[in-house]
């Protein structure tokens, strides 16, 4: 993926350009973008605080017409859920950040979330019974159900040690006219 590699290289160059006396710790959130391709790459540390920073950055950094408020909100909710699951439950190198690639075309926004860990497919999780009586309902298990309902596409694959989740949702109509 040429664009993916270019954006990753850009993040590495930015990191390499840090002052010599800067602390060696990787930033919680690193961002690179290619404005001509409407493509953004976020590298998010495996920490809860980093997830909140990332979701806030989506609001602050993406152009207002990138997705529209409804679609942006849907992606924020989805990322919050999926990235939190990685931080809380995934194995793999804890110091290696999660990566989110956002691409936009005329009609839709596509997100690719990648992280290195053993295979785990959230799309295979059974939907909770939201019609069950309150006393019988589980408190957990709602997040993936939310993602599934907020997105038009939600797919998983495991490639070369990386879990890759692809999320697709149309842009808000007002942003495509």
């Amino acid at each position: 993926m040429g664009l993916w590699r270019r954006l990753r290289d850009r993040i590495h160059r930015l990191r390499a350009a840090r002052p010599a006396d800067a602390p060696p710790r990787a930033p919680r959130l690193a961002i690179a973008f290619d404005s001509t391709a409407h493509t953004w790459l976020f590298r998010v540390a495996r920490e809860r605080e980093a997830i909140s920073e990332f979701c806030a950055a989506l609001e602050k950094r993406l152009p207002r017409d990138y997705a529209g408020p409804d679609t942006l909100h849907a992606f924020q909710v989805a990322f919050d859920e999926l990235l939190t699951n990685v931080v809380m439950h995934a194995d793999g190198p804890a110091r290696e950040p999660m990566e989110v690639l956002l691409k936009r075309d005329t009609q839709q926004v596509t997100a690719l979330l990648r992280y290195r860990a053993s295979p785990y497919d959230p799309t295979a999780r059974a939907a909770p019974d939201t019609e069950a009586p309150l006393a019988e309902r589980e408190v957990g298990g709602l997040g993936v159900h939310l993602v599934r309902n907020l997105m038009q596409g939600f797919e998983h694959r495991h490639v070369d040690g990386w879990n890759e989740l692809t999320l697709v949702r149309p842009r808000d109509p007002a942003t495509t006219t």
């Binding site: 909100h73 924020q76 909710v77 919050d80 939190t84 309150l134 006393a135 309902r137 408190v139 939310l146």
Partner: peptide, 20 residues
């Protein structure tokens, strides 16, 4: 202006506690 599934769980837990 924003609630995630973690926030929904908090509301849900409160519902179950009071419903009891």
């Amino acid at each position: 202006d924003y609630i995630s599934s973690a926030g929904v769980r908090s509301v849900f837990r409160a519902r179950k506690a009071l419903a009891a």
